[in-house]
Simulated scan of single mutants.
Amino acid sequence: MFERFTNDAREAVVKAQEEARTLRHDRITSGHVLLGVLGPLGGAGGRALRAHDLTPALLRPLVAREVDGLDPDALAAIGIDLEAVRQATEASFGPGALDGGGREARPGHIPFTANAKKALELSLRVAIRHRHRSISDGHIVLALLMLPDSSAGRALRAGGVDPDALKETALREIVSPAA
Rank of each mutant, 00 (worst) to 15 (best):
P163D: 06
K167P: 01
G138N: 07
L41H: 07
V37F: 00
P40Q: 11
I78V: 15
S123F: 02
A57L: 11
A51S: 13
T113C: 08
R129S: 14
S123Q: 04
A114G: 07
S136W: 05
I80A: 09
L120M: 13
I128D: 15
D81R: 09
V141A: 03
M1K: 05
A77E: 12
T89L: 11
S123I: 01
G101C: 04
L156I: 00
P61S: 07
A127Y: 13
E66N: 11
P61L: 12
T22P: 07
L166H: 06
A178C: 02
R27K: 07
R24P: 01
S150H: 05
R21S: 12
P148H: 09
A16N: 05
R154L: 07
E11N: 14
R65P: 00
L62P: 00
R133D: 06
G159K: 10
H52F: 01
K117A: 08
R60V: 05
L124K: 10
R86M: 09
V161E: 02
K167L: 06
L145C: 12
A57I: 05
A127V: 01
I135T: 03
S30A: 14
A152P: 05
A155H: 08
A165E: 15
H130R: 07
H139G: 00
G46W: 00
A44R: 12
E11P: 04
A97D: 05
A64S: 12
A179E: 09
R103L: 15
L171A: 14
A158H: 04
L62D: 14
T169W: 02
K167I: 01
D53P: 00
G45Q: 06
I80V: 13
A77Q: 14
G79Y: 00
R4G: 03
E121Y: 04
R47S: 03
H132R: 15
D73A: 15
G31W: 04
G79V: 01
V67Y: 12
L38R: 03
L98I: 04
E66M: 13
R47P: 01
P177K: 08
H130C: 03
F2N: 11
A77M: 09
E18M: 08
A116H: 10
R4M: 06
Q87P: 08
S30I: 10
L34Q: 03
A44E: 11
R10Y: 02
G153T: 01
S30H: 11
A48T: 05
N7L: 12
V85Y: 09
A77V: 10
L166S: 02
V13A: 15
G42F: 00
R10D: 13
L59Q: 07
R157E: 03
T55R: 14
A20Y: 14
L144W: 04
A179K: 12
